Amino acid sequence: MAERFIGEIYQKVDAKARVSIPAAFRAILQADDPLASNSQRPRLYMVYGGKKRNFVECYSKLGAEKLAEDIESMEDGSPERIKAELNLITRSVMVEVEPDGRIVLPPRVREKIGLAGEVPEKSEVVFAGRSNRFRIYRRDVYDAEFGAIDDDDDDDIDPLTLVGRHKRKD
């Protein structure tokens, strides 16, 4: 079974827009990138498309390939595929993780999460695990949306009940 991106990890962003990738996330990126065993620089695919998204969605090399395969299975030329290609393939960028575990957030990524231009002092982002991918939010945006642990409970349904409703029948 493959490792999963889990947890919420708060990281500082320096004035040069550098941020450390959490160690557990780096290990998954390394394992999912066949070329990384030679270079020790795993690739990270950062998707900044989607007008309503206030985050950047990040994939390992294998995760990005799976996403591309899913999009390629859509009907060629369909409006859905065109939208998916634009927002998930075209509006993305590949970066290599430095040997020290950091990346420089690319300009379009900074723009997407609200850190365009000069990065304010004491800026922070949140790496939010999503199983086969993770998201990067500006900390204040993440905290406003997900900050309190119990705020996401709109009703009294246990989250495991929701999982059970959609469980695969293998």
Rank of each mutant, 00 (worst) to 15 (best):
R53Y: 07
R138V: 04
A23I: 06
G147C: 02
R165G: 09
E121D: 07
R108C: 02
L115T: 11
R91C: 02
P22I: 01
Y10K: 15
Y142E: 13
C58Q: 08
K51A: 13
A15M: 03
S37E: 10
D158A: 00
I9K: 07
Q30W: 06
V95E: 00
F25K: 10
K66G: 03
D156N: 15
E124D: 06
R139M: 11
L62T: 07
E98P: 03
R135W: 04
E8D: 15
A17D: 05
A31K: 10
D140I: 04
L35H: 12
R138Y: 02
K167M: 07
I149F: 10
D70Q: 13
V109S: 10
L35C: 10
M1F: 06
S60I: 08
I28Y: 04
F55W: 08
L105Y: 08
V125A: 03
V93G: 10
L62E: 05
D154Q: 14
I71L: 10
Y59T: 02
V56R: 08
L62S: 05
E96V: 11
A64H: 15
D100T: 00
P106T: 06
N54Y: 03
V97I: 05
R81G: 00
D14G: 08
E75W: 05
I21C: 06
P159I: 14
I21L: 08
K12H: 02
A84E: 04
R43L: 15
S131V: 13
S60E: 12
K66L: 15
K16P: 02
Y10G: 05
Y48A: 11
G129E: 09
N54R: 12
I157C: 04
R108Y: 01
G114K: 02
V13M: 06
H166Y: 07
A148Q: 13
V47C: 00
N38A: 15
Q30C: 06
V141N: 07
Q30I: 09
A24D: 15
R108Q: 09
L29C: 02
R53P: 01
E65T: 11
E96R: 06
D143H: 04
D152A: 12
G114N: 07
V119K: 13
G117W: 02
Y45F: 03
D156E: 14
P99N: 12
L86Y: 13
I89W: 02
L86W: 04
D170F: 10
R135P: 01
D32A: 07
P79M: 07
R91V: 00
V109A: 12
R168L: 10
N38Q: 10
V13A: 05
S37V: 12
E8V: 11
N87D: 14
Y45V: 00
A2H: 09
V163M: 09
D33N: 14
V13T: 13
D153Q: 11
Y59E: 00
R18V: 01
R102A: 05
D153W: 03
K12I: 00
I28F: 06
M94R: 04
F146I: 03
E96Q: 08
S123G: 06
D151C: 04
P34H: 07
M46F: 14
K66R: 15
S20C: 09
E57Q: 14
E65L: 05
G129I: 12
E111K: 14
K83H: 03
A27V: 03
R130K: 09
